[in-house]
Simulated scan of single mutants.
Amino acid sequence: MKAVLMTAAGDPEVLQVRQIENPAVPVGDTELLVRLRAAGVNPIDTKLRKRGTFYPDKMPAILGCDGAGVIEAVGAGVTRFGVGDEVYFCYGGLGDRYGNYAEYIVVEERYVARKPTSLSFAEAAAAPLVLITAWESLYDRGRLEAGRKVLIHAGAGGVGHVAIQLAKLQGAEVCTTVGSQDKAEFVRQLGADQIIFYKETDFVQAALDWTNGEGVDLAFDTVGGKTFYKTVPAVQVYGDLITILEPDPALGNLKTARNRNLRISLELMLTPMLQGLVSAQIHQGKILEECARLIDQGKLKIHLSNTFPLEQAAEAHRLLETGSTTGKISLIIN
């Protein structure tokens, strides 16, 4: 099969198209052989490419956590799927097993959900990681309820644009940060109630003004770095601050957060895959099932801004690393 191999850690040029052996027909009871039609491109892919995978002794690697395609074979114990089913999932691509920058992949059944019928394969492949991340952050970590006020950083980004929609579906009010007028219009169409141009405006003061000086009930940090620490005073006392990046203690401290009794949550949707947590893997599969239902009902959208053929994975990485994209990027696998 054709695959994009990461031959070493480094610049996008380390992604090389190669012909390798097809994966075997599933030998495990609960495995699926999927003919991939598209793969999502995520920031985790570019980070692993630059610094090395979680398993540096297993090289070369095939990156790509997100995939969508058609099942070609199933294990004897598979109960939920059959040959010909169209599916999407977040599985592989961390270095210990092949990822989705390829023509085929073998996937455990519990990770998989049926592809939303209203989405193309490219759109579906762009969705799993950001859907699970936003869902776990707002619903599982943040326990978001109707009537709450939420600050979402980088609302036009991959995770951010899904988070706005999930927050609105829960009945929350949303303010979000953006960097341009085009992105402001984009998040407005998603339902954002208040838009903050972070390059021109102090987002903390803007959030306090929006909440009559109290601060938001929940802040969702998808940016990291200094933004995490700067967000603390924008959250009300006893509020929630959730981040998908690891806080850097060199950039700030949690004294103000402690004084405000904030509940701080760290979200890494890769944990079930990295630690082999079966019940959490099943939960993530169910999140994708529920999101597929919402998508097909027209209540949730995935914005796919750019597609590239599989052979141009390096170009997709270059674009993502500019930090200027809206929504998601996918690789088309013909």
Score class of each variant (00 low, 15 high):
Met1Thr: 11
Ala3Gly: 01
Leu5Met: 12
Pro12Ala: 12
Val14Gln: 04
Val17Gly: 00
Glu21Asp: 15
Ala24Pro: 11
Pro26Phe: 02
Leu32Gln: 14
Leu33Arg: 08
Val34Gln: 02
Gly40Cys: 04
Gly40Met: 04
Val41Cys: 09
Asn42Gly: 08
Asn42Lys: 05
Pro43Gln: 02
Thr53Lys: 06
Phe54Trp: 12
Phe54His: 13
Tyr55Ile: 01
Lys58Thr: 12
Ala61Phe: 00
Ala61Gly: 06
Ala61Leu: 01
Ile62Gly: 03
Gly64Trp: 11
Cys65Ala: 12
Val70Cys: 08
Glu72Ser: 02
Ala73Glu: 07
Val74Pro: 04
Phe81Glu: 08
Cys90Arg: 00
Tyr91His: 10
Asp96Ala: 07
Arg110Val: 13
Lys115Asp: 05
Ser120Asp: 04
Phe121His: 15
Glu123Tyr: 07
Ala124Lys: 01
Ala126Glu: 02
Pro128Asp: 08
Pro128Lys: 04
Ile132Val: 14
Thr133Ile: 09
Glu136His: 11
Ser137Cys: 10
Leu138Arg: 01
Asp140Cys: 12
Gly142Lys: 02
Arg143Val: 13
Arg143Ala: 13
Glu145Ala: 14
Gly147Asp: 13
Arg148Thr: 03
Val150Lys: 10
His153Leu: 03
Ala154Met: 03
Gly158Tyr: 00
His161Val: 01
Leu166His: 00
Ala172Trp: 07
Val174Gly: 09
Arg188His: 12
Gly191Phe: 13
Ala192Met: 11
Ile195Arg: 03
Ile196Met: 03
Tyr198Gly: 00
Lys199Leu: 14
Glu200Gly: 08
Glu200Ile: 08
Thr201Trp: 07
Ala219His: 04
Ala219Ile: 00
Ala219Tyr: 03
Phe220Gln: 14
Gly224Tyr: 00
Thr227Lys: 00
Phe228Ser: 05
Tyr229Leu: 11
Lys230Leu: 10
Thr231Leu: 08
Val232Trp: 02
Val237Phe: 09
Gly239His: 08
Ile244Val: 12
Leu266Asp: 02
Leu268Ser: 09
Leu268Val: 06
Leu268Lys: 05
Leu270His: 06
Thr271Asn: 05
Pro272Ala: 05
Gln275Glu: 15
Val278Asp: 10
Gln284Thr: 07
Arg293Asn: 08
Ile295Glu: 06
Ile295Met: 12
Gln297Asn: 09
Leu300Pro: 05
Lys301Ala: 13
Thr307Leu: 09
Phe308Ala: 11
Phe308Asn: 04
Gln312Tyr: 02
Ala313Trp: 01
Ala313His: 03
Ala313Phe: 03
Glu315Phe: 00
Ala316Arg: 06
Arg318Lys: 15
Leu320Asp: 00
Glu321Tyr: 08
Thr325Cys: 02
Thr325Gly: 01
Gly327Val: 11
Leu331Pro: 09
Ile333Gln: 03
Asn334Gly: 06
